[in-house]
């Protein structure tokens, strides 16, 4: 399968190691992976701030750059959801070939085992857009059978212990420009999430979105510097 890898702008700039881990994971599965460098942003920051019209061009850019791939993978549920919804609204068939990384591993590849070791206590932050938008797991509001694709994958990692949480899927408060324009609430929400993970003995907080993790990691650095954030791709790829 020819896969296109979409690395969102802030991952590109601040978390290249997560991009590399995603790449390695996909290549290990025997895929040919390419990463066009032209589009960098999905346009979500604009849309969420009320400038969806101006953000439309990013969808055009994206569709043009990635149309030729069998499937497109992104290690970011939030950006991917935005692209998917945008393309779906336009009736663009590419929408159905977009996958968040865990979803791809779980649903398309149906991975049953991983060559990865991570002997740590890990808290899984269920990012809202992955959880409720892409359906990566059962949102706690929904009265259906419980499941979590990211958690299932993490359970394949040797030595990794998932910590339970009091509020398994409360929003961390990042919310894009919300983190800046509503920074007080954003920070209060983030601290509560951090406390939940720390209280349950997490050494690492992981998740499908570095946007949430950037926010949580930024708070951890000040309150609990011994606890770190790691993108799920790094853990699944067996990075130390």
């Amino acid at each position: 399968m020819r896969l296109g890898l979409f690395i969102p702008c802030y991952v590109d700039q601040f978390y290249p190691q997560a991009g590399l881990a995603t790449l390695r994971l996909l290549e290990k599965l025997g895929h040919q992976v390419a990463c066009p460098s032209a589009p960098a942003c999905c346009g979500q920051p604009l849309a969420n701030s009320g400038h969806a019209a101006e953000g439309e061009v990013f969808l055009d850019d994206f569709a043009r750059a990635y149309a030729g791939f069998d499937r497109v993978i992104a290690p970011s549920a939030s950006c991917l959801l935005h692209l998917k919804e945008g393309l779906e609204a336009r009736g663009h068939e590419l929408a159905h070939r977009l996958h968040e990384l865990c979803e791809f591993l779980h649903d398309v590849e149906q991975v049953q085992s991983l060559d990865a070791v991570f002997p740590h206590r890990v808290g899984l932050h269920a990012g809202c857009h992955g959880l409720r938008g892409l359906g990566l797991g059962r949102p706690s509001e929904c009265m259906v059978a419980d499941f979590s694709k990211p958690a299932r994958l993490l359970q394949m990692v040797q030595g990794l212990e998932l910590v339970p949480l009091d509020r398994p899927d409360e929003c961390c408060g990042f919310g894009g420009s919300f983190a800046v324009f509503e920074s007080d609430v954003s920070v209060a929400m983030g601290r509560d999430r951090v406390d939940d993970h720390v209280r349950h003995g997490a050494e690492f907080i992981t998740g499908t979105d570095l946007s949430c993790l950037m926010h949580l990691g930024g708070l951890l650095a000040r309150s609990n510097p011994h606890v770190k954030v790691r993108h799920i791709a790094e853990i699944l790829a067996g990075e130390p």
Binding site: F14, P16, V187, G217, G218, L219, R222
Partner: peptide, 20 residues
């Protein structure tokens, strides 16, 4: 409003695309 309460991530020397 970001750095008042939160650290920024340690900036890497090169971006993902530069590394690629």
């Amino acid at each position: 409003p970001w750095t008042r309460h939160r650290d920024l991530p340690e900036p890497p020397a090169r971006s993902f695309h530069e590394l690629m």
